[in-house]
């Protein structure tokens, strides 16, 4: 049966695999297990056995349909799916990207051995098949690296979003007075989030005054100032007045040196000053309550 397939060059590998899947799997598993000892992250043998079985079955099925090894093609969909599952699983157990790739590359040894035995009388053929196997497996190995990178990027993006939400709280200081303590650098994306949450909060609490505290903003350049002014303008359009507070001396000098015009926006050095101003504008004030007799006598 294999003799007849050998002529149809393209499918010889698939036929070989079909006949010797168990042997290949055995050999792959043994080299995986011996390799596993040298890994930093120990993946359980049972997991490795299951993953190698799954992958080899999918690999065989795919190569039967597309021997050219165009791994982006539809014939390889299932293989890619399984590979990304394996890659994710191993990564979650602490495997590095190269370790996951090595998982695939180890299969080469088993397949090369098989090819060598099968075509022992035809060195040219051996070279050709080895090249073919090597090419496909290299691509699959690289694919695992891509998957690992993509996973990491997803993680970073998710954390970035979480950070965005964490870092833009709008707090109510008093009836009609909101505070927005900004921490970290203001880029345009963050400004957007800050602006939206501030405006929503203004509508919700019917606030008339919003204090933007920039104590936690490390530097204020022209861009950051522009973003601040935008926020102030948007709040004004909603009918709320803004006070910018927490301007440190260095920032004040930077603003002046850069020639940034903070326009008609009221600014205060500290949040306390801004709050006092906000209270005054709302017609409120803070006063000392009559001290109880006991403590006043003690003073």
């Amino acid at each position: 049966m294999e003799k007849s397939k050998i002529d149809t060059n393209s499918n010889s590998l698939a036929a070989l695999l079909a006949g010797n899947e168990a042997a290949v799997l055995e050999r792959w598993r043994s080299s995986l297990v011996s390799d596993n000892g040298s890994r930093r992250s120990g993946i359980r043998e049972a997991d490795l056995n299951r993953q190698s079985g799954e992958f080899l079955a999918a690999f065989r099925a795919a190569i039967e349909r597309d021997a050219a090894g165009n791994i982006q093609g539809s014939a390889w969909d299932q293989t890619r799916g399984i590979l990304s599952d394996i890659s994710r699983e191993q990564a979650s157990q602490g495997a590095t990207a190269s370790e996951v790739a090595t998982f695939i590359f180890t299969l080469k040894e088993a397949l090369f051995g098989l090819v060598q035995i099968e075509f022992a009388d035809d060195p040219q053929r051996v070279a050709q098949e080895v090249w073919n196997v090597s090419r496909i497996l290299d691509r699959l190995g690289l694919l695992t690296t891509d998957i690992a990178l993509k996973n990491r990027e997803e993680t970073i993006l998710r954390q970035q979003n979480e950070m965005l939400e964490l870092s833009t709280p709008v707090v109510k200081l008093w009836g009609g007075i909101l505070a927005l303590p900004l921490i970290g650098t203001l880029d345009s994306e963050r400004t957007q989030v800050v602006m939206e949450s501030l405006l929503d909060e203004i509508v919700r609490t019917e606030a008339a005054i919003a204090i933007i505290d920039i104590t936690g903003v490390p530097t204020v350049d022209t861009l950051v100032a522009q973003h601040l002014l935008k926020t102030v303008a948007a709040a004004r359009l909603m009918g709320a007045e803004c006070i910018i507070s927490g301007i440190r001396p260095q920032i004040a000098s930077t603003i002046v040196h850069l020639g940034v015009d903070l326009g008609g926006v009221s600014t205060k050095a500290t949040l306390a000053d801004a709050f006092a101003m906000a209270l005054l504008r709302s017609g409120l004030g803070v006063c000392r309550i009559e001290a109880p007799r006991k403590s006043s006598s003690g003073q």
């Binding site: 957007q192 602006m195 939206e196 405006l199 203004i202 509508v203 019917e206 935008k230 948007a234 359009l237």
Partner: peptide, 22 residues
């Protein structure tokens, strides 16, 4: 809020107009 953000992004802060929430 969405309208306010749009106007600001368009560069129309309407400096001459007085605004109120309700």
């Amino acid at each position: 809020p969405a309208v306010a953000i749009t106007l600001v992004e368009l560069g129309l802060a309407l400096p001459g107009i007085r605004t109120a929430l309700s």
